[in-house]
């Protein structure tokens, strides 16, 4: 039970960072922390008591393996997270070139 609660606490830490930080790069890093908590949660779900890593060894075929499906899902989700972070970084660099500052309180051109 304890690892699941730690995953949730990590998600809340990331959410707190997105809401209260003023620097643009810190918001992007907090979004990354939120993703990592989700990947940990997925990897913890597939555990079966007494299981080993799901690699088939030709010498000893019959064993109890842990569930390999969440591991494949996490691999795909990590690549998606990489693409999201790269997109965010590109927009942040162009914003710095236009406004001259990283502070989010200065970037309020659109109103209403």
């Amino acid at each position: 039970m304890i690892p699941y609660i730690m995953c949730f606490i990590l998600f809340l830490v990331g959410l707190y960072g997105v809401i209260t930080r003023r620097n643009l790069v810190k918001i992007a890093v907090s979004l990354s922390i939120m993703e990592i908590s989700t990947f940990l949660f997925f990897a913890l779900i597939g555990y079966i008591d007494g299981g080993v890593a799901p690699i088939v060894d030709p010498a000893d075929p019959v064993k109890t393996y842990v569930d390999p499906l969440p591991q494949a899902l996490v691999l795909t989700a990590i690549v998606i997270g990489l693409a999201t972070t790269a997109m965010l970084m590109a927009v942040i660099i162009r914003l710095y070139r236009k406004y001259g500052t990283f502070d989010i309180r200065e970037i309020k051109n659109l109103r209403g």
Binding site: V79, A86, M89, A90, I93, R94, R97
Partner: peptide
């Protein structure tokens, strides 16, 4: 494909910094 994608991301950011 993954190797060339990550290399393109890196090169694009450096080119943007160089042409300013």
């Amino acid at each position: 494909e993954v190797a060339s994608s990550i290399f393109i991301i890196f090169l694009s950011l450096i080119i943007f910094k160089e042409e300013s």
